[in-house]
């Protein structure tokens, strides 16, 4: 997404005015800020940026604030490219799987050789949560299962599910970089049974899955868990990760309130994964 970078220079004000200005701008769609010696730099997604509304809001909240500002347009691009091209080293999972980019070929053979050229999408196998889910897919039989990869990122989980014999995989992500990247990685790995969609849990209508993989975050999982459960077949499994172990109780409580039964719990470096089953 394109962004607007607004550099504010504040004059004749106390230091805390920059904090207050950030709070006000945060309420009208600005996402993040950088402190400077003379004020702040504020960032807003370009589509929601409205210069007139910004000035009116500042005037209404801080009528006597003395400031000047400069707007710059920042075009969308892959900000993670330096790491992806130079520092993403091949990752080995469970002695059976190697994930690597086309820039850095795997140095040895593995049963599952997965090529992931990440483009600002999550899921390279470097993260604990991805590794726990990949290990689960390696250790369990998923032959002929209907699988949903919710928040697919690079598509690495969907690709592994396909390699492990799943019948069909739906891969969904809310981010257009992830959607495109999953499609690219599916082609790189010659998979033909994965369908990619851009969107969120609202896409889950009239479908039935035997297994749902959701590596997202605690709040989204709690918010959307009901939609996942609704689309899960009887005895179907919901695997959730993307949260720290201290947040597992919140996830578990929500899952149990929706009638799910905990099958397993795994943790790695403070990150957690839970597997739950829907009743028959």
């Amino acid at each position: 997404m394109d962004y607007k970078k607004v550099t504010f220079r504040l004059t004749d004000t106390e230091d805390f005015m920059a904090d207050i200005l950030a709070a006000i701008l945060g309420d009208i769609g600005f996402e993040s800020f950088e402190e400077t010696t003379q004020g702040i730099i504020a960032y807003s997604p370009a589509p929601s940026f409205d210069e007139t509304a910004m000035i009116e809001t500042i005037h209404a909240s801080l009528p006597e604030l003395q400031y000047t500002y400069r707007i710059e347009h920042i075009a969308d691009r892959n900000w993670n490219k330096t790491w992806e091209d130079n520092y993403f080293e091949p990752i080995e999972i469970d002695n059976r799987c190697i994930i690597h980019s086309s820039h850095k070929p795997a140095s040895k053979k593995a049963t599952y050789d997965i090529v992931i050229n990440p483009k600002q999408a999550f899921g390279t196998g470097t993260h604990e949560t991805t590794r726990m889910l990949l290990t689960y897919l390696l250790e369990h039989d998923i032959t002929d299962k209907q699988v949903l990869d919710m928040g697919c990122g690079t598509g690495v989980l969907a690709i592994m599910a396909s390699l492990r014999g799943a019948k069909h995989i739906e891969a969904i992500d809310i981010d257009s970089w992830a959607q495109e990247n999953t499609e690219e990685n599916i082609r790189l790995n010659h998979r033909t049974n994965i369908n990619v969609q851009l969107g969120d849990a609202n896409l889950l209508q009239n479908q039935s899955f035997d297994m749902i993989l959701a590596n997202i975050n605690r709040n989204i999982l709690v918010r959307d868990m009901q939609a996942y459960v609704r689309t899960l077949a009887p005895k179907g499994q919901l695997l959730m990760s993307g949260f720290y172990k201290q947040d597992f109780d919140i996830i578990k409580q929500k899952a149990e309130s929706l009638g799910l039964k905990q099958l397993s719990y795994t943790e790695n470096n403070d990150w957690a994964m839970g597997c739950f089953e829907k009743e028959a």
Partner: peptide, 9 residues
């Protein structure tokens, strides 16, 4: 996205 992307990337 910016500022995280440019700053860290």
């Amino acid at each position: 996205s910016p500022p995280v992307g440019p700053a860290l990337g």
